[in-house]
Amino acid sequence: MLPWIELASAVAPGGGMLRLLRRGEEFSIRLGDGNELMNSRLSGSEEALATLALERAGARAAPVVLIGGLGMGFTLRAAQAVAPADARLIVSEIVPELIAWASGPMQPVFGDCLSDRRVEIRQGDVGDEIRAASGGFDAILLDVDNGPDGLTRDDNDGLYGEAGLRAARRALRPGGVLAVWSAHRDAGFTKRLSRAGFVAEAHAVRAGRKRGARHTIWTARRPHDRSAVQVR
């Protein structure tokens, strides 16, 4: 069996080492302790994050989608496949090295998806993007950390607590959808979504298209109301 070769590393804001490894055609991003965050062979649940959310948001003219976390680009590419030609796909990634890896050592995974004119990469905290917007997004897709429990950054808890969820609700247009990826089930998080004013649903999906561990995706729709303004 081919050995894993470390290609690069990066320090996430607030601490924690991210390591990029390759074995043949397979890529892996892991924490410094060896815990795997993502693998290029297992993309099914990250892709479902986009397809489930955009399906539930429904057909919209010039939809604006915020994707929290670039990762290996699985969620972005799934959104590209189903979003209309006039969509805006904004990706917020807090670790600058991950953005650089997309056009560097991980270019075989990303291909030419970042050259899509619909795509804008913003280096920064997705939480700041959410708090700065008010009713401007049609969908917010969060593939940040390992889910609501927060594994790599304590600050990520601010996305998944009630205050963070209410900020996400305000950032969505009426009928818009917040979708959250998690490695684990969490009945308490479903209840928090409801308390924050969402109509929430949890979905069990495979890590791979037909195999792998079961992950959880929440789709949470903002009910229709009268308030809606444009995203900055």
Results as ranks from 00 to 15, higher is better:
163 A>V: 00
178 L>Q: 01
181 W>H: 11
155 D>S: 15
176 G>R: 12
210 K>F: 11
213 A>S: 11
183 A>W: 12
158 G>S: 14
176 G>A: 10
196 A>Y: 01
166 R>M: 06
164 G>L: 06
203 H>D: 12
162 E>S: 13
183 A>G: 10
188 G>R: 07
206 R>S: 14
192 R>G: 03
168 A>P: 12
166 R>C: 09
166 R>F: 02
211 R>F: 12
185 R>W: 13
191 K>G: 00
161 G>A: 09
212 G>D: 00
180 V>H: 06
172 L>M: 06
217 I>R: 04
203 H>Y: 06
172 L>D: 14
217 I>S: 02
213 A>F: 10
170 R>W: 04
186 D>K: 01
203 H>K: 07
204 A>I: 13
219 T>Q: 07
156 N>Y: 04
197 G>R: 14
178 L>H: 01
214 R>Q: 11
175 G>S: 11
176 G>E: 15
158 G>W: 13
184 H>S: 12
181 W>Q: 09
169 R>W: 02
196 A>C: 10
193 L>Q: 10
157 D>C: 09
170 R>V: 05
219 T>W: 04
190 T>I: 02
180 V>S: 08
174 P>Y: 03
215 H>W: 10
162 E>D: 14
168 A>M: 14
199 V>A: 14
190 T>L: 14
206 R>G: 10
188 G>F: 07
182 S>N: 05
158 G>F: 05
212 G>T: 08
181 W>A: 08
173 R>M: 08
160 Y>P: 06
216 T>R: 12
179 A>V: 01
209 R>I: 04
180 V>C: 13
205 V>K: 09
179 A>G: 11
187 A>I: 05
155 D>Y: 10
211 R>T: 13
173 R>Q: 07
186 D>S: 05
161 G>W: 09
209 R>Q: 08
178 L>F: 04
210 K>W: 14
193 L>G: 00
166 R>V: 04
202 A>D: 15
161 G>C: 11
197 G>E: 03
183 A>C: 05
204 A>S: 15
178 L>K: 01
214 R>T: 13
198 F>M: 03
165 L>H: 10
184 H>Y: 14
173 R>A: 11
209 R>A: 04
171 A>T: 14
187 A>C: 04
201 E>I: 08
188 G>Y: 14
195 R>M: 02
170 R>E: 00
182 S>H: 03
175 G>F: 06
190 T>G: 00
193 L>W: 09
171 A>I: 03
186 D>V: 00
177 V>E: 01
203 H>S: 07
218 W>L: 05
172 L>C: 01
156 N>F: 06
211 R>K: 11
184 H>F: 15
172 L>I: 02
191 K>Q: 10
204 A>M: 12
155 D>R: 12
167 A>L: 08
158 G>N: 15
159 L>S: 04
194 S>H: 13
198 F>A: 13
215 H>N: 14
171 A>D: 00
179 A>S: 15
191 K>M: 08
200 A>L: 09
219 T>V: 05
197 G>Y: 02
167 A>C: 05
174 P>S: 04
